[in-house]
Design a protein around this nucleic acid. Structure first.
Length: 542
RNA sequence: GGCCCCGUAGCUCAGCGGUUAGAGCAGACGACUCAUAAUCGUUUGGUCCUCGGUUCGAAUCCGAGCGGGGCUACCA
């Protein structure tokens, strides 16, 4: 479809034992915004999301509900699909770890790594909680004073497990991260990983025998593999990178991860270790096993978490921003405004961000209602009032104090460069600054005053042409965040985006044709009042 | 316990050795009236957590303390 350089962006695959909430929606919205921006910038984008469906927790809760694990997975995978459809995600595929295409390729990986010796059968010893039927980590065990959930002491237990020889790749991974500043981002997270890589290396178990809801280890089927290999491999299996025969897409996706473009994994900080260390080690192990066609990702970007009105979200506080709350916000302010808040105020840095109602209203009013929305409204209104709703002509050589082509070129460059550095808020701010510049320009040139004398109409027309054209471009720059609202804004400016138009085409000053009919319409973002009670979701019970 | 980060205006944060410490939002005042009581301008506001040290000079470097937070790998 696009002939640009490939750009592959992924979200984590979400665990089907949970319901979608702000966390999963946030990551997906960020990935979506980047994907949309890159497509607009002419890149050949592939955007992947999906669900992680294996493991003991799914097996257990399915049993409790009297369902098969697959039924439960199907149900909850549907919830994620629906949630992501709701938030406007434009992912190109949705992979599920229980799909044949995935399982077959994971088994090939297991076979290859067992053959090369990087996966071996070893003995696992750990603290076992007999009541919960699960192992607890050394740290958890210590925190709990070596007592099980039911109060009885934890016991040391051993079992046979397959291990991945992470120790063999430890130094290589450390070198990779040390020498490549942007492999792990943001910088604070990179240091955290490097810090831990100074500790002693250890292999990681990659199979279990105490449950069966997973991918059987070829040749030793009482073992199932889960997490590290199962989940991480989704990024490759969805493209058919391990075996095109099971990828089933006729080789069309190979280019997204062949070294010619970028591969960006967007994740939450809780799974950084696996993505920053185990994942590249696995890829190196596959290389060593003869798969030198496989490449490392370009960047693993770990964002932080949303907190709620200054407090952590937790089950005990019941203060999760769940799907119902998200729906309630979108009902009142629109999906686009919700996305704008997520994207411009979100925890993309190493610190958590606060989701607070008053803050939401503040940002909504400042950026959208009083900002872009009002600027759009005053410009379209004046064009209607003074020029019958048709974009006026510019005078020859009209220098009105703002070098718009230069301003636009600069803001566009800023947006492109920020987005390339995964600074989504920075990229969007560039668009908003264009609309702020229009407000300032109107105040300084005062077309409404000039319009009182008909002799000034050519000048008024020139001013309003420049305003409308700048707003058109601002809308283009903000569209990856707010597709529907910006499409509406562009529609009213008589300038809808046509298929195939790229950022380069669309940000060219002068594209707007005089004579184009312009429509004011209702407020794009009606002003919000913080005195209204916070939108809250009614639980649907389903 | 170990490793690491942060504490700067009411709020969110930038500045990380050198002129009178900045931005956005909120507040106050003024201008304007095309616009969603919107916009534009001016402006109020800070012992830069505390104490001690290094330095001609520290928010910025070092030490101690107080306060907050992260990571600690076999949980998906």
């Amino acid at each position: 479809m696009s002939s640009g350089r490939p750009f592959y962006i992924t979200t984590p695959i979400y665990y089907v034992n949970d319901r979608p909430h702000v966390g999963s929606c946030y990551t997906t919205i960020v990935a979506d915004c980047i994907a949309r921006f890159m497509r607009l910038a002419g890149r050949d984008v592939f955007f992947l999301t999906g669900t992680d469906e294996h493991g003991q927790k799914v097996e257990k809760s399915a049993a409790e509900k009297g369902k098969s694990p697959q039924e439960l997975a199907d149900e909850n995978a549907r919830h994620f699909r629906e949630a992501f459809e709701f938030i406007g995600s434009t992912h190109d595929d949705f992979i599920r770890t229980t799909e044949d295409r995935h399982e077959k390729q994971v088994q090939e990986v297991l076979k290859a790594l067992i053959a090369s010796g990087d996966i071996y059968l070893g003995e696992f010893e750990g603290w076992y909680d007999e009541g919960q039927e699960e192992y607890v980590t050394e740290n958890q065990a210590r925190e709990r004073d070596y007592t099980a959930f039911n109060g009885k002491p934890l016991v040391k237990a051993t079992e046979q497990n397959y291990y991945f020889r992470l120790t063999k790749y430890w130094d290589r991974v450390r070198k990779l991260i040390e020498e490549n500043e942007t492999f792990v981002r943001p910088a604070g997270k990179r240091s955290e990983v490097l810090g831990r890589l100074k500790d002693e290396a250890r292999d990681v178990p990659v199979s279990r025998t105490n449950f069966s809801w997973g991918i059987p280890v070829p040749g030793d089927e009482q073992h199932v593999t889960y997490v590290w290999i199962d989940a991480l491999m989704n990024y490759m299996t969805a493209l058919g990178k391990i075996d095109e025969g099971f990828g089933g897409v006729g080789g069309s996706r190979q280019k997204y991860w062949d070294g010619s473009g970028e591969v960006v994994h967007l994740i939450g900080k809780e799974i950084l270790w696996f993505h920053a260390v185990i994942w590249p080690a696995l890829i190196m192990a596959l290389e060593d096993a003869g798969r030198d066609d496989l490449k490392l990702p370009t960047t693993v970007y770990a964002h932080s978490f949303w907190i709620r009105e200054g407090k952590k979200m937790s089950k005990t506080l019941g203060n999760f921003i769940d799907l119902e709350t998200i729906h309630a916000y979108c009902d009142r302010y629109g999906l686009d405004a919700f996305r704008w808040y997520m994207l411009t105020q979100g925890p993309l840095s190493a610190t958590d961000a606060d989701f607070a109602y008053e803050h939401f209203v503040e940002v909504y009013n400042a950026d959208l209602a009083n900002g872009f929305g009002n600027a759009h409204s005053r410009v379209t209104n004046m064009i209607a009032k003074y020029f019958g709703g048709e974009v006026p002509l510019q005078e020859e050589n009209a220098d009105l104090g703002v070098d718009w082509p230069a301003t636009i070129a600069q803001k566009t460059a800023e947006a492109v460069s920020a987005m390339g550095a995964v600074d989504v808020a920075g990229a969007l701010k560039a668009g908003l600054e264009v609309s702020n510049a229009v407000d300032l320009f109107i105040n300084e040139t005062a077309p409404f005053r000039l319009a009182k004398d008909e002799a000034n109409l050519p000048r008024v027309g020139t001013i309003l042409y420049q305003c409308a054209e700048a707003l058109r471009i601002a809308a283009v720059l903000m569209r990856p965040a707010m597709p529907d609202a910006m499409d509406a804004a562009l529609e009213r400016l008589g300038s809808p985006i046509r298929d195939g138009q790229t950022l380069q085409d669309l940000t060219r000053w002068g594209l707007l044709r005089p004579g184009t009919s312009v429509e004011k319409g209702d407020a794009l973002f009606p002003r919000a009042d913080a005195k209204d009670p916070e939108p809250s979701g009614v639980k649907t019970g389903a």
